[in-house]
């Protein structure tokens, strides 16, 4: 079925209007437009920071708003606050109405109720508005800090005066530093600075060079000594060899003497002098052997003897 223009337009208008009205009605319902309201009166010495339409908060929730502001016969500002009936239960006879004036931002109207069991506030009774001024509190807290700051500033001023004084310590220190840096920049090196003049620096360098030459010669000499003492044909191996041979010969002499003692024991009983001699030779041979070991221990024979310089 094809719809006529009239029907299409009718459907469009009705649907859109219904949609818009439904949205509006829902919004109005949620915002409490259809709810009955109670108006409470709060008095204040000043209307400063107050405005019509200003919300009233309870525990951070918006529960009402300022409906009207008027000046009473006594010169007090009468604030009429409308609160929907479902929120009226938070307003009790001991409720405190506060006007919070924060350091930054707009003033805020709040209500605080300590005892929820107390009697509900009568709309005819005018409660008193208490002002909580963050700015004044902050100024009171900041005052001692400001005093201390003033003292510090004075000290800083004295310090800077002393610094700026042409006869002061700072100026002196600066002058000395200037001298020091000037003399530093005039020298070639730290050594010159330490020794005082250029000639001493040159002598120092010359002695350093001599020392190096001497060290080189000592190294050469030491190499040669090493070769002569420890080399294949060196002195030490030859000494050791001679001593070994001597020790061997002494052992042989000992044996021969034993035989002489045996042969001559029958012939002569009183050969005490010979035994004495024998023990002397023994001790001599032993001491030679010890000497040899000592030598070996102290100068071990190496196949390729080398002297290492540190």
């Amino acid at each position: 079925m094809k719809l006529k223009v009239e029907h299409k337009v009718g459907i469009f208008i009705i649907a859109t209007v219904l949609l818009a009205l439904a949205g509006l009605a829902y919004m109005a319902y949620k915002k409490g437009v259809f709810q009955a309201e109670t108006t409470y009166v709060v008095s204040s010495r000043t209307g400063d920071g107050l405005s019509v339409g200003m919300p009233l908060y309870f525990s951070g929730f918006k529960i009402g708003k300022v409906k009207e502001l008027e000046l009473s016969e006594e010169g007090l500002v009468m604030i009429r606050i409308s609160i929907p009936d479902n929120h009226a239960k938070w307003i009790r006879s001991d409720s405190k109405f506060l006007l919070e004036k924060p350091l930054i931002g707009a003033a805020r109207l709040t209500v605080a109720t300590k005892n929820m069991m107390s009697a509900p506030l009568s709309p005819q009774t005018a409660a008193v508005l208490t002002e909580v001024n963050d700015i004044n509190d902050a100024i009171q807290r900041v005052q001692p800090i400001l005093d201390q700051l003033a003292a510090i500033t004075e000290n800083v001023a004295a310090l800077t005066n002393r610094l700026a004084d042409p006869q002061g310590e700072m100026t002196k220190i600066l002058k000395h530093s200037e001298k020091l840096t000037a003399s530093l920049s005039a020298r070639d090196s730290l050594l010159e600075m330490a020794l005082g003049d250029r000639k001493s620096v040159r002598d120092f360098h010359a002695s350093l060079r001599n020392t190096r030459q001497i060290t080189d010669q000592v190294i050469v000499l030491l190499r040669k000594t090493d070769e002569d003492v420890y080399g294949k044909d060196g002195v030490l191996p030859m000494v050791v060899k001679a001593l070994r041979e001597l020790a061997a010969n002494l052992v042989k002499t000992g044996a021969t003497l034993d035989n002489v003692v045996k042969i001559t024991s029958d012939a002569a009983d009183s050969t005490k002098d010979l035994k004495l001699l024998r023990s002397d030779i023994d001790s001599a041979a032993n001491s030679l052997n010890r000497l040899l070991d000592e030598l070996n221990r102290k100068m071990p024979f190496r196949t390729e003897p080398r002297i290492e310089l540190p």
Binding site: F12, I13, T16, V17, L19, A20, G23
Partner: peptide, 16 residues
């Protein structure tokens, strides 16, 4: 007038 007002309402509903 009617068209712009109604279509604006419709646009608002679409946005929501």
């Amino acid at each position: 007038i009617v068209s712009v007002v109604l279509l604006t309402c419709l646009f608002a509903v679409v946005i929501v």
